[in-house]
Nucleic acid binder design. Structure first.
Lengths: 201, 201, 201, 201
DNA sequence: GATGAATGAGTGTTCATTCAT
DNA sequence: GATGAATGAACACTCATTCAT
């Protein structure tokens, strides 16, 4: 990893734990192993580090959203089970590449901290944690409804229920304390639990 | 309001917006209208302000929990409708005196920010936002189950569903940006929506 | 002298020698014998020191101008010699209380340095070194003309000659290198020289 | 213009406006359009830029002085008017090639700023603004005296008067704020004014 | 000729805190 | 109860300079 990337990595870890303002340039440089003046060769100022992180995150998210669109547009193979699609998408999108992804998870924490006094971050926070996930899940369940796998009239509430549960779990297990393997497992178990009850029953 | 209370009030507003570390003694004193040296007559140091806020909050919460216990122990009057109890409790506990209460709401925001690097606060955060609410709701629905108002076997999932929904709404509307009247109304409407579907159908 | 005045005094000496930007807060504090943080109790920032110096200077100058007005309005006593008035005024105003005054002399040097990139200072510089002195001397010589001591038609050029000479001497002896006793004497001798030739011949 | 000359040009403009210390290598390189490290290919260090400027200036001045000597040694043609010589010399030396010359004018400003804390520069400043001009003019007027064009006994005071006037005008119009066309014209008009009165009357 | 990457020392300024009054 | 004056440590950031490429 080059110096610039190392700085961003260390900064994100620190920002997401203590907040942007509470982390000093000295803290970051000490951990990276460079002098403070060197950091200013790579970044215009402290804010520039944060901005670069946000830019990287939005690019990352755009990539994920594009990928999700792609998957969900694929014609379902015959005989596919209903939970198949949703699980697949949820797995790949929500969990592996997003909530469990170290970079994304830390960015969500950072946004959780900074959203209260930074409207730009707040908008991104609302989009990535509330708006986008709901949209994605609504799309999936609408298709399941159209395919006759679930009753069309139930779609609205099934989505709400599913979405609420996933959101609650995210805050409870993935955006609370360190992202330990225990918490990841607890999260995963509860998701599995929900799936089983909903679609296996 | 006396000076000490004014300091705590101003400090809470600032801490909950920008985080404990990012707020300076100068900031607080400037807003309160006293000199920095004066603050040290009322508080031992900066940390002491935060500690006092947490102490005040835990006392407040203890009072609420005691009150909730009291209400739920009350023998339900004959002829009462099922949703009556839950709505009443939810209203008084979750909403008016807790989530909508300015002091509590700001404390939750502060805890949301500080939990990532302060284990004591994290524990309190988990307790007040996840553990306690679940316990309370579980108690209520268990009683409804025992009373035959809802099927006992459904209690577990009804609680989970209800609790998830309330938790999601809390993060989406009450712990996101400023606590405006619009957001309070949006929250209330969605709660009402859920109630209607669940218990009126 | 209190701390604030000491800071201003030291700052002026340094600013007038090396220029505002080239003098550091550390330099000033080292000389005054205080910590840098203490300086910020007395001044908002570095610029505030400069502004305070300028304010003090303009007040000082206003006082001098008022005093000069007062003197020159006084009805000349009978039998007074022509050079009497001008010498007296020149002495008291231009020399003792202004050009030779340590504070004013250092301020002129500071203004000489800063005028090239600070329009506010440039205007003050032009006023105090060129405009005001000319006005004052014009007034004096007009009175001498009106009193028939010098030919009225010569007033314009006598003023110009006198004023040019004084201005040149100021830059040559008083705003060049250290203000040593030698340079003060050289200045004084040349002024005396001019007076003698002009009015004694 | 090659890079080295560009650096010197930019540096002079900046030094003469804000002073040597207040201008950074970054400032200069930014304006020239090179990286800071590149500057060190052309100059040993920051001081070296200043030294090179001073060297260039002293060479320039030596050339001018030699030229002035040459002109004034030329036997005056019969029938020449007295003001002819002085005007010609003043024009070519003092004005076009010196005071109005962009390089020289900026150097004078730089010297005006730096003289207070740099004895080498102070000596050069005194020489070029006070000593040399006086010598030159004294030579000219001496010749006019010897030629019987002006009374020999008046030479001393005519020189003093003329020299004072020119010096005052230089500081008032040419070393005060930007060297605009307005100020150049004002300077020129006043010089013409003096000439007319002195030698045309 | 020019640059990318680095650095130690220094810049102005803010920090939480103390203490005599 | 409150303040004026002070402080050492830390803050984000800029300085002139070096050196391998």
């Amino acid at each position: 990893m080059n110096t610039r990337d190392k700085i961003m990595d260390v900064a994100l870890h620190m920002f997401s734990e203590r907040g942007y303002e509470a982390v000093s340039i000295r803290d970051i440089c000490g951990e990276v192993g460079i002098k403070e003046s060197t950091l200013y060769y790579h970044f215009k100022n402290k804010k520039d580090i944060l901005d670069s992180l946000i830019k990287k995150f939005t690019s990352h998210i755009e990539g994920l959203l594009a990928h999700v669109d792609e998957i969900s547009e694929m014609p379902g193979k015959k005989g596919r089970k209903n939970e198949d699609i949703s699980l697949q998408v949820t797995d790949s999108y929500m969990i592996d590449s997003y909530l469990f992804d170290p970079f994304c998870n830390l960015m969500l924490r950072l946004m959780m901290i900074e959203q209260f006094h930074n409207e730009e971050i707040r908008a991104l926070y609302e989009k990535t944690l509330f708006t986008d996930p709901y949209e994605i899940q609504l799309n999936i369940f609408k298709k399941l409804g159209a395919a006759g796998i679930i009753p069309e009239k139930d779609v609205e509430w099934i989505v709400k229920e599913y979405y609420s549960y996933m959101t609650m779990l995210t805050f409870k297990y993935l955006l609370n304390g360190d992202l330990t393997e225990e918490r990841k497992k607890a999260y995963y178990d509860e998701v599995h639990n929900l799936m089983t009850r909903r679609f296996m029953a």
